[in-house]
Design a protein around this nucleic acid. Structure first.
Length: 515
RNA sequence: GGCGCCGUGGCCGAGUGGCUAGGCAAGGGUCUGCAAAACCCUCUACAGCGGUUCGAGUCCGCUCGGCGCCUCCA
């Protein structure tokens, strides 16, 4: 394995710089220790969540492609994320409890039930979009003991204090606070929020407006634990740093999340973790930009929210027909990774259609290659070298701050070479093997050709449809051989009505679902 | 007010000072009963104005325009 540099924008230094694993795995290869902030499971994950998770996924895939091992931890937040947490204040309502009271929440017996449901939905979406499973996916509620211990340490070493309402981190005791976001000037922060004529509620017991909750005392809360500071629940910022350190060590290589987490969440994590260990918490920080939908910011307020479920579910299951549901999950994946993670991305129907078309192109190549492997034809190899180059280009692009557009361009070059050669002359066994290797490697780098986990998306309905289509095609082939063009075209119209598109190839007629 | 991003051909979107990114659409072709699909060919742009340079989409300055986070939200 040649020496590879994986360059990634580091929010801490504001520069694209090499990502450097500080440890080795058992076999001596570099070991990347990576924590990516996961979602609060109070609802279905939306496509913006997944843009962030996909960035993490691509980081993991790229690291593996250059021979690294990855310890990849991504959490599930199922307690403590308050609606007003982003003010660094923590006076709002718990998102989980609030969700339970909403209309969708009525179907759940309690918050635990709700969390279980949406965690399951998250995992299903995760698989459908072909994301690698994290090495560990810890839940906040399963690490309350560790969080309480962290609060105790912070109280003991003078970085936290207790009030009637809870335990707060003492921001002035940590002079580096805000170093990640650049929000170091408290007056400017206050001016900024005040300019929105927003009510800034400050807990009376807090010593500094920036101080944030480590523990909230609340013996009426739906999720509560006993602690030395009374019944209550841990602050949202605490879980990530505690779980990251538990599973990855005191100083981790890389920490990522959505851009909104940069401040205050990540600055708070840094403060907590470093106040405990006196060591750097993470050496590299990465944030994924928000996406827009048809040029507008996706926002719950405006209701232009798109969940993965909205797009990939059948219409009977709540899929959105105005968005063409059910969309091929891989097309959604391709669409979401077609822009650079560090730039705002505009998610549009037009782009989604393009992605669906290109996914078909990959499938077409994949099918051709499988067929050629089985056919075992004689002949030389004219593909190995161009495909080797294309893969190397794709990987190099990914190592260059996850330049997905350029990586995809290289992947297209490769796929076009395969299709082009195959068109001229069906692939020889040896060329097909080269093509198969290429598709395999591109797939493990970008995940856009086939699912790695064998999830069966096929339903019984689809099987029934397949039988029906095959029968119709057989009739049409008969009609064509007797030159009954009217009958043949009639059958084609019937297939069209079923949403099926047919292709008359030299080898026979094949079909696929229309885009 | 603080922190940050962007303006590239019909559209999306790379471009790390000097050689055609790529995709989609469009036009032309090959194939085909027709159609579709597939494959082949064509399509040279960098918001404006200055500057640095032998040479700038790429660096610097200014102008104009758009956007994000700091608040729901990844």
């Amino acid at each position: 394995m040649p020496d590879h540099t994986f360059r990634l924008y580091n929010a801490l230094t504001r520069e694209v710089e090499p990502l450097v694993p500080s440890q080795k795995s058992e076999d001596g290869s570099p070991l990347l220790r990576f924590y990516s902030c996961g979602p609060t499971v109070y609802s279905y994950a939306h496509i913006g969540n997944f843009r962030t998770f996909l960035t993490a996924d691509l980081i993991v895939r790229t690291a593996k492609a250059i021979g690294w091992e990855v310890n990849y931890v991504s959490n599930v937040t199922d307690v403590g994320h308050l609606t007003e947490d982003d003010t660094a204040d923590a006076f709002g309502e718990d998102r989980m409890a609030k969700a339970l009271k909403s209309k969708e929440g009525e179907q759940f017996a309690n918050v635990w039930d709700l969390a279980r449901h949406y965690t399951g939905a998250l995992m299903a979406d995760w698989q459908a979009l072909n994301l690698k499973e994290p090495t560990i996916r810890p839940r906040a509620t399963e690490h309350v003991r560790e969080q309480i211990r962290a609060v105790e340490v912070l109280l003991a070493n003078g970085h936290a204090y207790e009030t009637d309402d809870g335990v707060y981190f003492d921001v002035p005791s940590f002079p580096d606070y805000g170093k990640l976001s650049g929000n170091t000037n408290i007056e400017e922060l206050v001016v900024g929020s005040a300019s929105d004529s927003r009510d800034v509620v400050v807990d009376e017991g807090k010593r500094d407006p920036r101080d944030f909750a480590l523990w909230k005392k609340d013996d009426a809360h739906l999720m509560q634990w006993h602690s030395p500071f009374g019944w209550g629940f841990p602050g949202w910022h605490l879980e990530c740093s505690v779980m990251a350190q538990k599973y990855l060590g005191e100083t981790i290589d890389l920490h990522g999340g959505g851009e909104d987490l940069r401040f205050p969440h990540h600055d708070c994590e840094i403060a907590q973790a470093e106040a405990i260990t006196n060591k750097p918490f993470a050496r590299h920080w990465s944030h994924t930009r928000f996406l827009q939908v048809e040029g507008k910011k996706m926002s719950k307020r405006d209701g232009n929210f798109l969940t993965v479920h909205d797009l990939t579910a059948a219409v009977e299951d709540g899929g959105r027909s105005d968005w063409g549901a059910p969309i091929d999950p891989l097309a959604l994946r391709l669409s979401l990774i077609s822009g650079h993670y560090g730039k705002p991305f505009n998610f549009t129907q037009a782009a989604l259609k393009v992605a669906a078309k290109n996914i078909q192109k990959y499938r077409h190549a994949d099918d051709a290659v499988r067929e050629s492997l089985e056919a075992n034809r004689e002949g030389g190899d004219n593909l190995k070298s161009p495909l080797g180059d294309a893969y190397a280009d794709a990987r190099a692009a990914m190592c260059d701050d996850l330049n997905t557009p350029e990586a995809l361009a290289a992947a297209y070059r490769g796929v076009n070479a395969i299709l082009s050669h195959h068109r001229q002359e069906p692939l020889s066994s040896i060329a097909a093997q080269a093509a198969s290797d290429f598709l395999e490697r591109i797939n493990s780098l970008l995940g856009i050709i086939r699912h790695e986990t064998d999830i069966e998306v096929k339903s019984r309905d689809n099987d029934a449809l397949a039988e029906q289509v095959d029968a119709l095609i057989a009739h049409r082939t008969e009609a064509r051989s007797s030159k009954d063009w009217a009958r043949a075209d009639e059958i084609r119209d019937e297939l069209d009505a079923l949403g099926v598109e047919i292709m008359d190839l030299p080898t026979g007629t094949t079909w696929r679902n229309k885009l």
